[in-house]
Simulated scan of single mutants.
Amino acid sequence: MTSVPAKPSQSKPASPGRPKDLGKRAAILEAAKRMFTAHGFERVSMDQIAAEAGVSKLTVYSHFGDKESLFSAAISAKCEEQLAGGLFQVDASSSLRDQLLGIGRAFLSLINSEEALAIHRVVTTQPPPAKLGQLFWDAGPRRVQGVFEAFLRAEMEAGALDIPDVHRAASQFFCLLKGEMHMLLLCGCRDAIDDAEAEAHVQATVDTFLRAYQAAPARKR
């Protein structure tokens, strides 16, 4: 009986292929942010983004797969520019209030920026089939709230905070930061918020948050 040759093993890992060009990726993201904020989502094509970035359409698809993925990546990149991961790392050399002030200032600067306001308007004016709202939420607010929740839990473990519902507390913090001024900017009732007003708002928000959740000092025996 003639033996049948064994088939080649299917477990061999695939070749990783050529590494992605990080410079081109950054150029695509910058082009995407400019075009999505200026023209909306539906009116921008991958061809246009490729031309704006100075790369081929194939390169855009190689990095991001489709327009929805590119939109999500652009939102994430904008958040990372102003809310870098290190901002949410517990710093034993700094007070909890100072750390919250740093997070609050960065977040307020992000959401009140012209670029972020324009993206928000794009999301809220698109037809439902685009699912932009969910893409925006997952890539931006949900991600930011998640890393902030991790920061709060670390501070709870250190005994600095006493929070019964971390998810709710994180949401409250960011909603307080948005406040009236963010809505005024979105509605076009204000052109800008001056630095002194923004700083006073951040400090009041942080103090309100700490009054609600700062752990009581241990009673001396």
Rank of each mutant, 00 (worst) to 15 (best):
A139F: 02
P128Q: 10
D91M: 05
L152Q: 02
F36W: 02
S95F: 10
E81D: 15
H63I: 00
L177S: 07
A218C: 01
V202C: 07
A74K: 02
G159L: 04
A212R: 12
D165H: 13
V144Q: 12
E42G: 11
R25C: 07
K78V: 08
A196G: 04
D162V: 01
E180T: 11
T59M: 04
K12F: 12
S94Y: 00
R18S: 10
A31R: 08
M1R: 10
E30T: 15
A169F: 06
F174V: 01
D66W: 01
A118E: 08
T37V: 07
Q172A: 14
F209N: 05
R211V: 08
H39G: 00
A139T: 03
F41P: 00
G23C: 00
P128T: 11
A154S: 12
Q145T: 13
E68D: 09
Q203V: 15
D47G: 08
Q214D: 04
C175N: 14
Y61H: 11
A139H: 01
F64W: 06
A27T: 06
D91G: 04
L87D: 08
A106T: 03
M156W: 05
E81K: 07
V206C: 09
K57M: 03
V55D: 02
F41N: 02
A196N: 05
P16V: 11
V44Y: 03
V4Q: 14
M46S: 12
E149G: 15
A74E: 02
A215S: 12
L70P: 07
L161Y: 10
K20Y: 10
S62R: 13
V206M: 09
Q99N: 09
Q99I: 04
K24W: 01
F151W: 13
S93F: 01
A196R: 13
L58W: 04
L22H: 11
A74P: 03
S72T: 08
T125M: 06
L70I: 09
D138T: 12
F148C: 03
D191K: 15
T208R: 07
L70E: 07
F64Q: 04
A150L: 09
R121P: 00
T2F: 13
E199F: 02
W137G: 07
A169Y: 09
A27V: 03
F64D: 03
D138F: 08
Q126E: 15
E115R: 13
K33W: 01
E68L: 01
H120N: 09
L152M: 10
R221I: 07
P141G: 08
R34Q: 15
K131F: 12
L186F: 08
R221A: 06
F173P: 04
H120A: 11
K57I: 02
A198I: 00
P19K: 13
S15R: 12
M181I: 04
F36L: 04
Q126T: 14
C187G: 12
H182S: 03
Q172P: 00
A26W: 00
A84V: 05
E81Y: 05
G102E: 11
A150Y: 03
V144Y: 03
L58H: 05
S56W: 01
V122D: 03
R97T: 06
L83C: 08
G86W: 06
P5Q: 10
H120S: 13
